[in-house]
Each structure stands twice: as structure tokens, then as C-alpha cells.
Simulated scan of single mutants.
Amino acid sequence: MKIAPLTLRYQLARSALLAALTGLVPLASQAQYPDRPVRMVLPFGPGSATDTFLRIVAEPLNAALGQTVVVDNRPGAMSALAVEHVAKSAPDGYTVIAATNSIVATPAGILRKVNYDPIRDFTPITRLAGTSYVLIVAAEQPWKTLADLIEYARANPGKLNYASGNLGGLMYGGMLKNSIGVDMVHISYKSTPPALLELLAGRVHWMFTDLVTASSQAKAGKVRPLLATAAQRTAMFPDVPTIAETGIQGFADMPAWWALYGPAGMPKDAVERLNREFTTILRRPDVRSRLAVMGIDAVPSTPQELANFTREQSQSYIRLIKEFDIQPE
């Protein structure tokens, strides 16, 4: 057996080493997710419950991801503007949405035309949290109880109006109006803050809003809560009766929720990383206690659990909208 000359052996060894190193280059050059800021789109404006909640989570998320989490508020059209924007974004993991139950309710019949499908056009990442609603009136209004408000409405048909700045305001407001059989005017706003301003100014008579908004305004003495939608009285409003306690018929259980989605086709590593970091943060005692004070319950999940939940909620809203004859906006 002949031994190759030294020069030839050197060239062969060098070629083998280069081939090995070349094979490693793609692995070494692949950046781990995320390697730039992540944009989290919110379907409601600054000051809303969604905005307040997600900014609390965004603080520790910045550190966990090692990148800035940019909160992008895009209110309007019952959250459809924000949801459609994310559905059409690049599925690279750098644009996600902290959606509310509007993501399934809007295409179920809340709006006449919606350019997205809640199942087909999104990648489920994790459930985030849930809360409930409260009916409020401005503190200067004369109604001390729900019975007072209903009595006035029946004595003055068509003279009262109510606002909605989110899905709960729209649905629960419509349910109350239908259940007592009195004509009242509905006024829709892009999000809760502008609707609340109109309520406080006396141009809106009543509205359903989330516990986060109701609590802060009640503590400031600006609003009076008259009815809670939760199954049991909440610690935040122990003196406010629930729907069941009033005996009023015609309401459906429709709690508010938030969940994280990305565009369809998101990379698996991005989904897993976001799921892991959000789950860890939402299980932290300090974060959970901050949210609990606001009436928000953290409920992280697996991506598959969110996928199942999304399908169930979509079917539920199709049924509810038909059952309560909710007319599209």
C-alpha cells in the first residue's frame, strides 16, 4: 500500500476539515428566536383593560426574551382591524396578537364582513387570562340599583342609551335590553376609554364594562356598579348582585378572555418559546397577585388546549348571536 506524498495528505486533510467546518456554518449562523424586538398587537387603545393587563406582562417578558416587546395598540371595528392586521403579517414569530373573545365572536356575526377566519388564519400560542363584566352608571345619575334603572327605562322608552367599547358591552347590553323589553339606543365606541368618558360626561346613561375599568372608576367615586355578570359575587364588588340574584331571564354566560395568537404558519420554535415564557410569567405569584387585584385570573395553556378552546368558543358565539338575535354592526 502506497502512502500519499506529504503534500497530498495535507491537502486531503485540509479539504476534510473545510468540509466539516462548512457543514457547521449553517448551524452556527442560525440565530435563536428571538433575535430582534417582538411586536405584540392589542385590539384596544391605551387605558383599556387589555392594555393595562398586557403591559404588566410585557415588563418581565422583555427580560425573559432578551428582546424588547413592543406593545402596538390598534383599536377599532370590534377588534377586527388588529386581528386582520396580524392575520396578514409575516408568520415569523415577530408579530403576535393578544386577542380577546372578539376574535371568534366578530366573524360569528358581530360584524357584517370580516376578512379572517379564527381557526384557519392563526397559530394558537397560549391562553392568557379571563375576567367578567359589570354594569355601571355615572355616580351623578339618580339610579342606585338595577331596579331603579329598569323602572326608569320602562317609564321612559327610547330616552336612555347605553355604550359599548368591547364585545362584552355589546353582548350584555343587548341581552339586558332584550330581557326587559324596553327600547334603548346603543352607541358603539372603538374601545372602553372613550365610551367611559361619554358615560362620565352624562352623554351615555349606562354600560357594561370589564372589572378592571369598573374597579378603578368605582374606587375614585366616579361610577356606581349595579350588576355583575360573574356566577358569584366578586370580592371587588361584594355588594353588587349577580344576574342570577336579580332573577332576570334572557342572559347567557359569556366571560371575557384573552389569548395569544400568531399568523398561521408560525415556526414551532417561536411558538414554544413564547408559550414557555408567557406560562412562566403568568404563574409567578407577584404577577398573579397584581392581576387578581384587577379582577383578572391568569389561565395559561398549551397551544393545543388553546386550539380546542378557540373552536369551542367560535361555535358558542355562533349559537349565542343567533339565539339572542344580535344584529351585525
Rank of each mutant, 00 (worst) to 15 (best):
I150Y: 05
A201S: 09
I110C: 06
R290C: 14
S191Y: 15
L54F: 01
A58K: 05
R319V: 12
W143K: 10
Y172D: 12
V185L: 15
A99Q: 01
V96P: 04
D72H: 09
S164V: 08
I318H: 14
P37H: 09
V212K: 08
T302R: 06
L196E: 10
W257Q: 07
I248F: 00
I248L: 15
T95R: 04
I296Q: 09
E198W: 03
Q232L: 11
L227P: 07
D35I: 02
T100M: 05
T106A: 12
E198Y: 06
A13W: 14
V104D: 05
A105Y: 11
R112A: 08
A256M: 03
L61N: 06
N308C: 00
L12G: 02
D239M: 10
E59N: 07
A19R: 10
N101D: 12
I3P: 01
A264R: 10
S29D: 01
T123G: 01
D239E: 15
P142H: 10
S215V: 11
T229M: 08
A195F: 02
R276F: 13
A31F: 10
R39A: 08
Y133G: 08
L61T: 10
G295V: 02
A218Q: 12
K113M: 01
R74A: 05
R203K: 08
L282H: 09
K222T: 09
A298P: 05
T22A: 14
H85K: 15
A28P: 11
P142A: 07
L197D: 05
V240F: 11
A63V: 05
A64G: 01
P193Y: 05
M1D: 13
P263N: 10
S215A: 13
A20K: 06
L17E: 10
T310W: 02
A264T: 08
N178S: 14
Q141S: 09
L320G: 13
Q327L: 00
T213L: 14
R74S: 02
I136M: 09
L128S: 03
A307Y: 08
K268A: 06
S314W: 15
P107T: 06
D253E: 02
L170Y: 13
Q313W: 12
N308A: 00
V86H: 02
W258F: 08
L17V: 06
T50E: 07
T95P: 00
K177P: 01
I56K: 14
T280V: 00
F122E: 04
R233N: 10
W258S: 09
E312T: 14
L81C: 08
V212E: 08
M236S: 03
Y189S: 11
A163W: 09
V223F: 09
V293R: 13
T229L: 06
E245H: 06
G76W: 07
R233W: 04
A155L: 11
P238C: 00
T131I: 01
T106G: 07
V271A: 04
A138Q: 03
A147N: 15
Y162K: 03
V83T: 12
A231Y: 05
T310G: 03
A139G: 11
R283M: 15
Y33M: 13
Y152H: 14
A218Y: 07
L167E: 01
S89C: 06
M40R: 04
D239C: 04
P328L: 14
A58V: 04
V204R: 03
A28E: 10
Y162H: 11
I136E: 02
S102T: 02
L24C: 11
L81Q: 11
V70I: 13
F208I: 12
D269H: 15
I321G: 13
S289D: 14
G76Q: 14
F44L: 02
